[in-house]
């Protein structure tokens, strides 16, 4: 594969793509000291190894990458060569600018994407939650990157749309692959326990079934069916279960206000909390608190 390098500031090929800051293939034939010192990235960076062996530090963890492996570095993560330089070999990469939505370090890809806003948010959340920096044996990623390059160079009719579609496809591939890699999809109870932990760590979030299913690497229908079979509850009812159990503990500690507890455990309002709580336990949160 031939070397090339497009940069959004000086490559006319990228003129219509402000979200692509860089794309390229490089063959490294000799070691240059300090050619890859650790820096914090602001974009999504995707590296695919074509040849050689690369030792990198991503988010303070060391990885060894071989041909066919892919590294994904998210905004805010640290990335560099394990010894500060780029190893010998051939690597292909793509840097994508993202919008940081708020102070919670949430990121979302821009409107250039053909994905719906919910899908884009879900993909970002899953990537951040999975936190899988290296995917092994993802040959399809290479094909996609190669096609993006060809489209950019040849500029045939509708290439702009095609390029953006291909980037979407790459992101979908990466997010699915990272989930498969985390869950071998053999042991549902174990995978479900991991999901439950993730939910408990952020109960205030308005989890959707789609997000929960994506975390396990299943479609929503299969996911709901498995959860129902295994727990006896629909995913959302199971979530209410955890919310109420957590709320009971907080109520007993007598420290927080009912409204704070409601919001901390993911209810829309204290009203919503009280109704749900009473329906299930027979007590309003205030009555329950008095009881203990």
């Amino acid at each position: 594969m031939n070397q090339f390098y497009f940069h959004h500031e000086h490559s006319s090929e990228l003129a219509g793509f402000p979200h692509i800051s860089e794309i390229g293939i490089r063959k490294i034939t000799n070691i240059q000291l300090d050619s890859l010192v650790t820096t914090t990235t602001t974009s999504i960076r995707i590296y695919y190894i074509l040849d050689g062996k690369f030792e990198w530090s991503i988010n303070d963890r060391c990885y060894v990458l071989y041909p066919g492996d892919l590294a994904i570095i998210l905004p805010g993560q640290k990335f560099g060569g394990a010894r500060g330089f780029m190893d010998i070999g051939t690597v292909c990469w793509l840097s994508l600018e993202v919008n940081q939505t708020d102070q919670h370090k949430k990121m979302i890809v821009g409107n250039w994407s053909g994905l719906s806003k919910t899908e884009r948010l879900t993909i970002s959340k899953i990537l951040q939650l999975n936190n899988t920096s290296v995917l092994v044996r993802v040959k399809d990623a290479h094909t996609i990157l190669q096609t993006i390059k060809d489209e950019l160079s040849q500029q045939e009719v509708a290439y702009a749309t095609r390029v953006n579609h291909l980037i979407d496809e790459l992101l979908i591939l990466i997010v699915r692959q990272s989930t498969y890699q985390m869950n071998l999809r053999r042991d549902f109870p174990q995978t479900f326990t991991k999901l439950e932990q993730t939910l408990r760590e952020d109960l205030a979030r308005q989890w959707t079934v789609e997000e929960m299913a994506a975390l396990i690497g299943l479609g929503t229908t299969a996911f709901s069916e498995k959860v129902k079979n295994y727990t006896g509850f629909s995913p959302l009812n199971y979530l209410i279960n955890i919310r109420i159990s957590e709320a009971i503990k907080l109520l007993r500690r007598q420290e927080m206000s009912i409204t704070t507890i409601a919001l901390e455990t993911g209810f829309y309002s204290s009203q919503h909390f009280s109704t749900t709580f009473k329906k299930l336990t027979g007590y309003t949160p205030i009555e329950f608190r008095k009881k203990t």
Binding site: N241, I242, S245, I248, L280, T281
Partner: peptide, 14 residues
């Protein structure tokens, strides 16, 4: 989690 067991039991029973 004893509270989760209790809530699950109530939920299923109800």
């Amino acid at each position: 989690d004893p509270e989760q067991i209790f809530i699950t039991m109530l939920y299923v029973l109800k």
